[in-house]
Design a protein around this nucleic acid. Structure first.
Lengths: 243, 243
DNA sequence: CGGGTAATTGACCCGGGTCAACAGCAGTGG
DNA sequence: CCACTGCTGTTGACCCGGGTCAATTACCCG
């Protein structure tokens, strides 16, 4: 899954994939839905890789307002280098049941000295994460509720597609309206109404933890979505293992 | 200036500082206020270091709404590794006249293989940047106008302090109300009113490109500011050049 | 079947946006 | 030295997108 994710950057060798698979197999933990994988204030000792399930990064204010600052989908890496910092400045929570691989700094170094391709691919992944962060700020700071929610759904849809979790416009979508609210800076009530809007315009179908986007292009148009920020156009083609 | 910035992470050796100074001296460009240093869509070929002046990172929507997603102060690095990506997903604009050093990938590699301390310090700087991004999302997504503006002013104040640009609670502050509006997702009109509020409560003095915060602790309290996200507590003390 | 989580609806309200005019001030050029 | 221009800050009147509160109805899982 991680290999698949990284191949959006560059084609990896059989050997690279094997190395990634190996690292994905060591010290796997299971986290129940609604539990934290890491909590703010903890000392970060390892990097983590989401093997299965959905998680989110979030921060809270003193008085309990909560902002989701990112979603982790299967194949996503949390924080290549966090262990440089003394304390976590945010938490990571499991949305569904999650399988995570924990990766020690040593393993990380070994992996990165194993191949330039992998190293670059991991940096790319990190840079894409930062880019998504920026787009979210634009989303929350400047767009209307309608655009915000549609934009977010579309981003997740596209990201799921790159890891092969979309078939024929359909995908599993375990995120609740409250999650969407916390991610967009809206209230759950208003998210609900906004979703009804999107549905009424035939842009999405969302029910029972299942999302269908019949015509992604149309949704792209009406939300101001521009996929460039996901950097999916094989940036590292010069590293292609088969080139 | 960069050395000073990085010493918030760990103490550097005389040699490290010299290396940083050397890199700061090569290919220095001057950018006029209100001009772009880098523009969205460009191919990123080099990393950049702000030597002097203020800049900001921003993104725009199709129809011209603009979100500032970060400020660069003197000593700040823009994007260690951007040249991995094919195109810039955002622009960097000069707020004042700016002096920037441009740093080639080769120089970057040389610098990082020169010393682990520097390498870690640069990674730390990058991680802090990401952390600030997240805090901004919390800021824009969850806080009131009053908290948002106060929080932002305080963050910039604290960051300026770490590079020695605050004396006795005073600092230069070339950011206009329109900048503040674009950074907080508010309108210039409302920023203006909010500043008047902050002034009325004696929390800030801001006039003629000059900011004074008489009692940072009080402002901290009333904006929900928690400096942890800036990771200023010498995370890399184990790397201390004099330890 | 029961208890907790998630979705939906309606009535009402408010923080912040919009529009428009004006004032201050810095730089620029004649 | 002054008039001009363009940016920045300020104010007032009015409005609206989205928030709040509260109740109700699905769900889902053990």
């Amino acid at each position: 899954m991680l290999a698949q994710r990284l191949q959006a950057f560059t084609r990896l060798s059989r050997d690279d994939c094997a190395a990634l698979d190996r690292i994905s197999g060591t010290s796997v933990r299971h986290i129940k839905a609604r539990n934290d994988i890491v909590s703010e204030g903890e000392r970060p000792l390892v990097a983590r890789l989401i093997l299965d399930g959905w998680a989110c990064r979030y921060k809270s204010t003193e008085d309990g307002r909560r902002q989701i600052v990112g979603f982790f989908l299967p194949g996503d890496f949390c924080d290549l280098n966090v262990y440089i910092l003394r304390r976590m400045d945010h938490s990571v929570g499991a949305i569904t049941r999650v399988r995570v691989a924990t990766i020690s700094p040593e393993q990380m170094n070994a992996l990165m000295s194993h191949s330039v391709r992998i190293t670059h691919a991991l940096w790319w992944h990190e840079l894409v994460g930062a880019s998504i962060q920026r787009e979210w700020l634009l989303n929350v700071g400047q767009r209307t509720a309608f655009e915000r929610v549609g934009h977010l759904l579309l981003e997740l849809f596209v990201r799921l597609r790159t890891v092969g979790l979309v078939t024929d416009g359909h995908c599993d979508f375990p995120v609740t309206q409250t999650h969407l609210a916390d991610a967009t800076g809206l209230t759950p009530v208003h998210v609900n109404r906004t979703l009804q809007d999107l549905r009424a315009q035939g842009l999405i179908r969302l029910e029972r933890r299942h999302l269908h986007i019949p015509d992604p292009d149309r949704l792209t148009g009406s939300t101001g979505f521009n996929p460039d920020y996901l950097h999916l156009d094989h940036e590292g083609s010069h590293l292609d293992a088969n080139a």
